[in-house]
Design a protein around this nucleic acid. Structure first.
Length: 511
RNA sequence: GGCCCGUUCGUCUAGGGGUUAGGACCUCAGAUUUUCAUUCUGGUAACAGGGGUUCGAUUCCCCUACGGGCUACCA
């Protein structure tokens, strides 16, 4: 198995926006593909027409692109094993299901949904027979195994709707090798006769998945843990087709769990906590409701990927900050955990703030500039870079600029009331008046040190300790009680602006 | 209910038959920053329970509990 070239696929269903768990599944596939110089494939599994959501496919592609997960083959990039959208492969499935029926491995089933419902309900109280369509119950149902040959033919000729079911053998041990969990053993008697081909002419996941993985020469199936229970069926399918040699290596990933409480992570958790949930903004086509994405909120894709990679995997030592290239270097399926991981928004914020601190002021400023212009401000890149230098350690996401640093772009309109009450008094007002006089005397621009000297001299002159008025000084300049190094801030704002703001504060702040 | 998977600080996790059970987030305290944030130092905090096996088990086995998944003509 290991000598075959690595070909992995991410195979989402376009039934909605891409869930964080899906992003992580795609990521682990990608990491393995790149590490082993293999091929990464995007296959769209759109066999359920009833759940199709317009725009979902584009959303999935765009999300992964933002995350830096690239594909070598797929619905959007082509390749030698296409088509890569299952709805475009209908004839292929038809061919293979016909073969399976001819070989006696699958059979026609004519039961209506109502009949199935009755069967299940009737069996629910039974302690000996499970409410399933299986080797025991199928003899009482309407299918090509129980019905006379001529009646089956008559129904087929009359174009009666039918589904095709897998003829699951009885009491057979099925072993599944999973690279994360080891050998998992099932007994076929516990499994039911799954529908392989629906009456609408489409295959179900099971058939399409196995046929495509075989045809696309997939070497490793890396998918969510929810697929583990149906893996024995898939193994049986490979055997039924005579493809024992092509059974891929399976790796079932643990699920992402809610940040608190019970159950798996859902979109509601983001809504409930008022946090972004998808990689990029998603607007529901039905409700027009917007769900925030990390991209639009200002997260770095590198930080998001780093965070996601560590939910279920780690390199075995204490390092935590990993670029995509480093993840590729270090990744191995053997080190993926067996148990689910809670999705901790706080940790994501920590990762992002780490990346933010390590990003140059130039890059941050260029990210911010369009929006700054959009807000109607005209500042130079150099100025914006200085703002980033002074403020970035206080931000979690780059867009925190707009909520924490507006005083660099416009004079305060209001003054934080608690600080006014605590720090604004006659002596602070006197000191600020003195500072204003000194600034107005100065003929040239002042630097941070000079501002500090003036501030201290003014305090001395008025007989107050600097610590008692520094917050009032900050308040007068920025309108708030906390911010970056005050004298550096003054230098950046400049003598003229500072003078104006101090004057305004003296007139405006009541005490 | 049945089948399958899992269980180390609140969270993400390292480790693994003999360890002071390590790190990170969170949190708390101190230092620095004459504010806040950053930074630094330090602290609180975990092997689900019960049986085995063993000189010795958190580590291996079994049972129980708890958590998760599946049990559709959804994927």
């Amino acid at each position: 198995m290991s000598d075959k070239p690595v070909r992995v696929r991410f195979a989402p269903s376009p039934t909605g926006p891409l869930h964080p768990g899906g992003v992580r599944t795609a990521l682990y596939n990608y990491l393995l593909a790149r590490k082993s110089k293999g091929t990464m494939i995007l296959r769209i599994e759109d066999t359920d027409q009833t759940r199709f959501v317009p725009g979902a496919e584009e959303f999935i592609i765009e999300s992964l692109k933002w995350c830096g997960i690239e594909f070598d083959e797929g619905v959007h990039v082509g390749g030698d094993y296409g088509p890569y959208r299952q709805s475009d492969r209908k004839p292929i499935y038809k061919e293979y299901i016909t073969k399976l029926i001819a070989d006696g491995k699958a059979y026609y089933a004519f039961d209506t949904p109502e009949e199935l419902e009755i069967m299940r309900e009737g069996l629910k109280s039974s302690t000996v027979v499970a409410p399933q369509y299986n080797s025991i119950t199928r003899v009482n149902m309407k299918n090509s195994l129980s019905l006379p040959q001529d009646e089956v033919q008559r129904r087929l000729d009359n174009n009666e709707p039918y589904a095709v079911r897998f003829k699951m053998p009885r009491n057979e041990e099925i072993k599944v090798k999973d690279s994360i969990r080891g050998w998992v053993v099932f007994n076929s008697s516990q499994l039911d006769d799954k529908i392989l081909f629906k009456s609408d002419g489409m295959p179900t996941y099971h058939l399409a998945n196995v046929v495509d993985d075989k045809l696309m020469k997939i070497s490793h199936v890396i998918r969510g843990e929810e697929w583990l229970p149906s893996t024995p069926l898939h193994v049986m399918l490979y055997k039924a087709f005579g493809w024992e040699d092509s059974i891929p290596e399976f790796a079932h990933l643990p699920l992402l769990l809610k940040p608190d409480g019970d159950g798996k992570l859902s979109k509601r958790d983001g809504d409930r906590l008022g946090l972004p949930f998808y990689a990029i903004n998603w607007v529901s086509p039905e409700t027009k409701e917007l769900t925030l994405g990390y991209r639009e909120v200002g997260y770095f894709p590198e930080a998001y990927i780093n965070f996601l990679a560590f939910l279920g995997w780690n390199p075995g030592d204490h390092r935590e900050i990993f670029s995509m290239d480093e993840l590729i270097q270090e990744f191995s399926l053997e080190r993926v955990h067996k148990h689910g991981a809670r999705y901790d928004f706080g940790k994501l914020n920590w990762f992002n703030s780490q990346y933010l601190k390590n990003t140059s002021d130039e890059v941050l400023a260029s990210m911010l500039m369009p929006e700054l212009k959009n807000k109607g401000f005209d500042y130079s890149m150099e100025y914006l870079q200085e703002v980033c230098r002074l403020m970035k350690e206080r931000w979690v996401v780059v867009t925190d600029c707009w909520s924490t640093s507006m005083f660099f772009f416009e004079a305060p309109q209001t003054y934080e009331q608690v600080v006014v009450e605590k720090k604004w008094n006659n002596s602070s007002k006197a000191v600020i008046s003195s500072i204003l006089e000194e600034i107005n005397i100065a003929s040239e621009e002042l630097n941070a040190q000079q501002f500090e000297d003036i501030f201290k001299a003014s305090c001395d002159k008025n007989g107050v300790k600097s610590g008692q008025v520094i917050q009032a000084f900050r308040l007068a300049i920025s309108g708030v009680g906390s911010g970056p190094a005050i004298f550096e801030m003054a230098q950046l704002l400049g003598k003229k602006e500072i003078a104006e703001r101090l004057t305004h504060s003296l007139d405006f702040i009541k005490y």
